[in-house]
């Protein structure tokens, strides 16, 4: 791991959304969507990010590609700080940072032919003429497993899987080094999921892409990822190699999460860890360890002291007092 180049460095990143109220729309409180994440992503790897809905995994992805502005912290990309840059300066980095969206039905403009949609990416970033753009788009279509004649079709003429391929083509168009896949396969049915995952993997091998693979589907993340980050309520709770996380989960939240994966063999009984209570509101953030309100092994000090981010075994980090 150490001999690999660091591509993306996220340092103590926070994103707090104001909740406005009153006559003058002053911020009354803040929703702490992402609350202090430190992360290094290496070139060519896939980092899976898992957690239940509302844990801030999508917000983290959007912060990385600059769709949301940081409240606090630093984002370094390829050795340069890009967090908090104004849009104009961010444009040259945007070529390298792309995103594949969740809903293939909502991520394409229904009024635009897909050929035009893909061409637009080149029009924004390069000075290619119309026919050069068209050639590029057609080779791009083939790259993602579509055909040249799909150029003149509208999004509604495609299936979900095909649309997602168009989304991948759009993300791929500018030769990015990092692609954030925000629930990229969650909206697809299982057989199509497998095809898209295969496509993502083959593209990664071909172009040395780095993926931030955000998903709530633990099985898919395990299949895709080299390393996995587990998030809970805007905070990182555990990070490690995919094998370490899935075979030897340390944090009580990770254990509970993994015990919820359905097993193919119904006779294979195992302990199901059930969490008590609801996910606390991100606008009323718990003190100390964010997980202490539901943690089965919480002690008194968990409610007061924020747990340190510790390396338990090689490259396996966890934020828990009791591990």
């Amino acid at each position: 791991m150490e001999n690999q180049t660091q591509l993306l460095k996220v340092k103590n990143v926070k994103k707090h959304f104001p909740v406005k109220g009153g006559v003058f729309q002053r911020p009354k409180s803040f929703v702490k969507a992402v609350n202090g994440v430190d992360l290094t992503v290496f070139e060519g790897e896939t980092l899976g990010i898992v957690g239940e809905s509302g844990c801030g995994k999508s917000t983290l992805g959007r912060l990385v590609i600059g769709l949301e502005k940081l409240t606090e912290g630093m984002i370094d990309f390829g050795g340069e700080s890009i967090g908090g840059l104004p849009d104009r300066q961010l444009k040259k980095y945007k070529k390298n940072l792309q995103m594949i969206f969740q809903d293939p039905f909502a991520s394409l403009n229904p009024r635009q032919k897909i050929g035009d949609a893909l061409e637009e990416v080149f029009i924004i970033h390069s000075k290619l003429n119309k026919s050069e753009c068209k050639t590029k788009v057609k080779s791009l279509l083939k790259e993602v497993g579509l055909k040249e004649e799909h150029y003149d079709r509208y999004p509604h003429e495609f299936s979900g899987g095909q649309r997602q391929r168009v989304g991948i083509a759009r993300a791929l168009a500018l030769n990015p080094s990092l692609i954030v896949c925000d629930e990229a396969v969650s909206a697809l049915d299982v057989s199509v999921q497998a095809q898209i995952i295969k496509l993502l993997k083959s593209l990664q091998a071909k172009y040395n892409l780095t993926y931030l693979f955000i998903s709530h589907d633990l099985g898919v993340v395990r299949h895709m990822s080299d390393r996995v980050l587990v998030m809970y309520l805007g905070a990182q709770v555990e990070l490690g190699h995919s094998n370490q996380i899935y075979n030897n989960p340390l944090h009580p939240y990770t254990r509970a999460l993994l015990s919820a994966i359905p097993r193919p063999n119904p006779k294979h009984k195992r302990e199901r860890i059930k969490l008590e209570g609801d996910l606390p509101s991100a606008s009323d953030y718990p003190t100390g360890c964010p997980f202490h309100t539901r943690c089965p092994i919480a002690q008194d000090h968990c409610a007061q002291v924020v747990p340190e981010w510790r390396e338990i075994e090689e490259n396996h980090f966890v934020a828990c007092h009791e591990v």
Binding site: N109, V121, I124, R170
Partner: peptide, 22 residues
């Protein structure tokens, strides 16, 4: 708030382009 508008933002489209073209 549609994803295709976000997608245009991620590829670096200007506000002008997003407003009038999308």
């Amino acid at each position: 708030r549609q994803e295709y508008i976000l997608a245009m933002k991620t590829v670096g489209a200007s506000d002008w382009r997003i407003l009038f073209k999308h």
